[in-house]
Design a binder for these strands. Structure first.
Ligand SMILES: O=c1ccn([C@H]2C[C@H](O)[C@@H](COP(=O)(O)OP(=O)(O)OP(=O)(O)O)O2)c(=O)[nH]1
Ligand SMILES: [Mg+2]
Length: 437
DNA sequence: CAACAGTTAGC
DNA sequence: GCTAAC
DNA sequence: GTTG
């Protein structure tokens, strides 16, 4: 492990560019470079000699060129040298600093024949559908939510059992396994017939081999062995209870359990609660219940009236499950905006700027706050696949992601209405009550 | 084997 | 930076 | 957990 004197990377500053670089290779290189005298640089400096290493193993030359071009524009540094990662591999193999020669990546202008214009004509000749165009209909945001198929559908026994596992995994900090279960459960709920065999199950979207086996076990045995193994123990029961405290999640629940806490009373006697958790405990039973829609209507009327007394021009909209028409609501989500038309010279330019944003962001904020959460995640995932990004602030296009990180933040698409957001994503419009996913 | 949404706030 | 919330 |  000790740093060798006279290593073959002595006095070299090296940056590993993460695009297309697997975590395993990255780990190896991050250990090897300092061991041989090199200096790892985590961010790109504006000046000074630096070697920028880019994965060139199994990557299209055009993509490689694009990365080099982007880098030299975003982090201009005349003393930077761009090299393929294979140079590093060769150095490590041969135990010496190899010549840059064929490994050096030069910044080149995109060839006119490869430009967008060229691509467009090529596309027109072969109107092959893109991945997104072929799969857009599979996103839940492209479909209307089935109005409560959830309580009556023919595979209820199966989804009830799987939901127990999904919840257990969520409560124990296995969010992605829980996410996988949840997607499978949604597919099963939308399937109109009672499932009878393994292939039928595995044919459903987001149901793989392991899930299909579980489904068959539930059909044949009436229950799943795994459910009792995972859920029926003190730890899981206590985690489920603690996760219902507002302000506590899987991590805190686990800590509390390890500290020896088992009941809400134990928690109340803990002197290390956050402000949120104290509220969560005090209102535990209140927050655990959902309100009737009618109660929300009353609360909304009160909030709206109060807001309008302050400024009669305010727009006050009830969002969340209420706007989606649900008969019960966990809370009431209210979006307040200001329908500003012209800059008001009576107030500061900073405040005018904020009011303009309130107007520009109204539709994306309304989309976000109306949900459901699952619907939002689906629509945001579709945006990613289309090279865009959707948040409560804006829909942005031409986003370039390098390993999920945004390398280019893109351009805001104006979206004056909810319908314009659906349109930009080439989705059929869905009214709020069709977003109950 | 990486991705599975994107943001804000408390501590 | 981690954790939790929306 | 499933997918590409
Ligand atoms: O993880 C989340 C949680 C919420 N939201 C959005 C969608 C959701 O509809 C809205 C309000 O959140 P809330 O938790 O109140 O959900 P809800 O849909 O109103 O359901 P509930 O009846 O439980 O309040 O915020 C998200 O985008 N992501
Ligand atoms: Mg709500």
């Amino acid at each position: 492990k000790r740093r060798k004197a006279g290593g073959f990377f002595d006095d070299l500053s090296i940056h590993l560019y993460p695009a297309a670089l697997s975590k395993i290779r990255q780990g190896i290189f991050e250990r090897q470079i300092p061991q041989n005298g090199g200096q790892l640089v985590s961010s790109l400096p504006k000046s000074g000699q630096i070697l920028v290493l880019i994965e060139d193993n199994a990557i299209e030359p055009a993509r490689l060129q694009q990365i080099v071009r982007d880098l030299s524009q975003k982090h201009p540094n005349p003393e930077a040298t761009y090299l393929g990662m294979s140079w590093l591999s060769k150095c490590l193999e041969t135990g010496q600093q190899c010549l840059f020669d064929e490994f050096e990546l030069k910044v080149s202008e995109p060839k006119p024949s490869e430009s967008n214009l060229g691509k467009m004509t090529k596309k027109d000749e072969h109107p092959k559908e893109s991945y997104v165009d072929r799969n857009r209909h599979k996103f839940v945001c492209a479909q209307s939510s089935s109005d409560e198929a959830t309580s009556t559908h023919p595979n209820k026994l199966i989804t009830d059992e799987l939901e127990k596992l999904a919840g257990a995994y969520k409560n124990s900090n296995d969010q992605w396994r829980a996410f996988g279960y949840q997607k499978a459960i949604t597919s099963i709920k939308n399937y109109p017939k009672a499932i009878t065999n393994r292939d039928e199950a595995a044919a459903l979207p987001n149901v793989g081999k392991k899930m299909a086996d579980k489904i068959i076990e539930i059909i044949e045995q009436g229950s799943l062995q795994k459910v009792s193994e995972v859920c029926n123990n003190e730890r899981m029961q206590v985690l489920a209870l603690f996760n219902r405290v507002w302000g506590a999640g899987p991590k805190t629940a686990e800590q509390w359990f390890l500290k020896g806490h088992r009941t809400l009373e134990d928690l109340q006697n803990d002197d290390k609660l956050t402000a949120h958790q104290k509220v969560g405990l005090r209102l535990f039973h209140d927050l655990d219940e959902r309100m009737q829609r009618e109660e929300c209507t009353e609360i909304y009327a009160h909030v709206q009236a109060t807001a309008l007394e302050i400024n009669p021009n305010l727009e006050v909209v009830a969002c969340g499950s209420y706007r989606r028409g649900k008969p019960t609501c966990g809370d009431l989500d209210i979006l307040i905006t200001h329908p500003k038309l012209d800059d008001d010279l009576e107030i500061s330019s900073i405040f005018n700027g904020l009011l303009n944003r309130l107007l520009e962001e109204r539709a994306t904020a309304l989309m976000y706050f109306t949900g459901s959460a699952h619907f939002n995640r689906s629509m945001r995932l579709l945006a990613i696949k289309m090279g865009m990004s959707l948040s409560e602030h804006a829909l942005v296009t031409d986003v370039v992601r390098v390993n999920k990180e945004k390398a280019n933040t893109g351009t805001v698409i104006p979206t004056p209405t909810e319908a314009s957001v659906f349109e930009a994503l080439q989705l059929p419009y869905r009214a709020p009550n069709e977003r109950n996913h």
